[in-house]
Design a protein around this nucleic acid. Structure first.
Length: 197
DNA sequence: CGATAGATCGGCT
DNA sequence: GCCGATCTATCGC
């Protein structure tokens, strides 16, 4: 008889991503994600779509950079921010995507600390740029499938309390409530105003 | 702790 | 030429 080891939650399917970004962004709070074995629990996301002035796909204009975001759901859209930080998105339906903003580190922690050059667990993956640095994600992963190694995305187990707020670091459409977080998590890039749902 | 400046460069107008 | 879906260090209170 095997011992009663709890099974890992199942890997998500392509259908998980084939929805609008707001729904996927919510579904991802509490879900697991890793790259090459390093990763954790997703605690913060933001959604973007073609109707959103802050989105790279705004107005449905195809450019060299955003072509992955217009591609099939279930792939990574990775771009360079401010000339130095990589940002990871999960491509969803119809030119929409979810920016992965923060993780609660659970696996490969020492490797992530080494990549970041920091011991501090709370800020190891707190922010899109830090998260990519910790996991070792760069533009080389743009267009890669999220349904196959070295990526792994797992459904969340059980219920979570999700809070909602306005997005961070944008100048357009700054009032849209498209930032989602795990209520009370110490691993957020920034705290939410007290407006849990 | 909040505000701010500087780093640094690809994408787009 | 301008402007970022950021981060860090540093300054002021």
């Amino acid at each position: 008889m095997d011992a009663a080891v709890p099974a890992l939650p199942p890997l998500v399917s392509r259908a998980f991503f084939a929805r609008d970004a707001d729904r996927v962004a919510r579904a991802l709070i509490g879900a697991g994600m890793s790259f090459g074995g390093a990763g954790g629990r997703i605690v913060e996301t933001e959604s973007y779509d073609p109707g959103d002035p802050a989105s790279h796909t705004f107005g449905r204009r195809l450019t060299p950079r955003n072509k992955t975001m217009f591609g099939p759901p279930g792939h990574a859209y990775v771009y360079l921010s401010y000339g130095l930080h990589w940002c990871l998105n999960f491509v969803c339906a119809d030119g929409s995507a979810v920016l992965i903003r923060a993780l609660e580190p659970t696996s490969g922690i020492e490797r992530m600390r080494k990549r970041r050059g920091s011991e501090e667990l709370k800020t190891l993956c707190a922010g899109p740029g830090r998260l990519c640095q910790a996991l070792g994600i760069t533009g080389a992963q743009d267009g890669a499938s999220l349904l196959a190694k070295p990526f792994a995305v797992r459904e969340r187990a059980g219920r979570v309390a999700i809070c909602v707020g306005v997005r961070i670091g944008i100048s357009k459409a700054k009032d849209l409530p498209r930032r989602f977080g795990l209520t009370g998590s110490p691993f957020l890039s920034r705290r939410f105003a007290a407006n849990t749902e």
